[in-house]
Computed example of a mutant assay.
Amino acid sequence: MGIDLPLIWTVIIGFGLMMYVIMDGFDLGIGMLLPLIRHREDRDRMVNTVAPVWDGNETWLVLGGAGLLAAFPTAYSILLSALYFPLIFMLIGLILRGVAFEFRFKADEAHKPFWDKAFTWGSFIATLSQGVALGAIINGFSVDNLVFTGGALDFLSPFSVFTGLCLVVAYGLLGATWLVMKTDGLIQGLMRRAAQLLLMILLVAIAIVSVWTPLAHPGIAQRWFVLPNIAFFCPVPILVLFTSWAVVRSLRRDGQAKPFVLTLFLLFLGYTGLIISIWPHIVPPSISFRDAAGPEQSMGFALVGALLIIPFILAYSAWSYFVFRGKIGTTEGYH
């Protein structure tokens, strides 16, 4: 029995995208939460919590994109054609955010507010674009003979815009709980309150998406609500409710790292629900990961490189988070 290369690459790309959402989500969230804080010193503390790690977090996005090109070139060509505008805007947002991140520390007092706004808008544009792309993927694409046949604006729909706003709330929640873990005093108190509000909004959004998606897509409804699938998948929404309750309880009981860890698990559950809804399609509603797989020689060659580099990415990420553990002080540096 040979190695199932398409399945292995699907797991690798899925893992890379999940790691990106987990690791880049909270620093995008911090950028969007920046306007809640008035004082310059407090804003600097917020940004300093991610200064040592933020650029490494986006390594996972590069890994996911490069892996998609190497292993599933057909899916790569369709998705980039269908999602040209949201992906372009995502890159613009990430570039704007990256430039603002560096310049805000070097600018004089007169120009610092401009770079703070650029950091916030870059974070918002990148997050909204990712959420719109996610909604478009759930909706599916018009494909004929493995070629995208839709229009440039087919990605845009009420559902995709709504999922974009949902991701803004989700990343904001991640950012708020990260700041609860990494700061203290007034910032932490404000972020505890913000996290509880964002969690309530996110739960309402999840409920709307959970109703909207099966109503709009009978195939997804059949996936979730027929026997025996419903018995296997019902733990996901139950765990969402239980985890949300645990997040609120931890926030109210002066939890430090626990709210952030629980929020990560909450987003993982949402990611799991997405996989359940579209599996085994890599380009919904009709192209599976096996249909889109490239030549086995290409996948095998690229797999060697991926298996060599992924442990290094995990190792240096873990080491950087370990070195910069603890809370950020009122001056530059960690306690």
Rank of each mutant, 00 (worst) to 15 (best):
A107D: 11
P73W: 07
K106L: 10
F89L: 13
M90Y: 12
L61T: 00
D27T: 04
F72V: 05
M23I: 08
I37P: 12
G25E: 04
L33M: 10
T49H: 06
I95H: 07
F105Q: 11
M46P: 05
R45E: 10
L80P: 14
V47Y: 13
D42H: 06
F101H: 10
G64C: 13
G65R: 04
W54Y: 01
L34I: 05
L83G: 09
N57Y: 02
A82G: 03
P52G: 03
F26A: 00
N48L: 15
P73F: 09
D24P: 03
A82R: 06
W54L: 01
L80W: 15
N48C: 15
A100S: 15
N48R: 15
I92N: 13
L80T: 14
N48F: 13
G64Q: 12
D42L: 06
P52W: 00
G56T: 04
L36I: 07
L33S: 07
F85T: 02
D108M: 09
I92Y: 14
L36G: 10
L28N: 06
A75L: 03
D24Y: 00
F89Q: 04
A66C: 04
T49I: 07
M23F: 08
R97P: 09
F89G: 02
R104D: 11
A66K: 01
F26H: 10
V62A: 00
S77N: 14
G29V: 07
F85V: 07
F26L: 00
W60Q: 04
V47F: 15
P73Y: 05
D42S: 08
E58D: 06
I78V: 13
I88A: 12
A75P: 11
L28K: 03
L61E: 00
A82Y: 02
T74D: 08
I95F: 12
I92S: 14
G65Q: 01
A66R: 03
G93P: 05
G31V: 02
A82V: 05
W60M: 06
F89D: 02
M32T: 14
R38N: 13
F103S: 15
V99D: 06
D55F: 02
L94Q: 02
L96P: 07
M32W: 12
L69M: 11
P73G: 09
W54T: 00
L34K: 10
G64R: 12
E41F: 02
L96H: 06
L63R: 09
Y84N: 06
A82H: 03
R97L: 03
Y76T: 00
F72N: 05
M32Y: 11
Y84S: 10
G64A: 15
S81N: 13
A70Q: 04
G64T: 14
L87P: 09
Y76M: 01
T74P: 08
F103H: 13
A66Q: 02
G65L: 03
P35C: 11
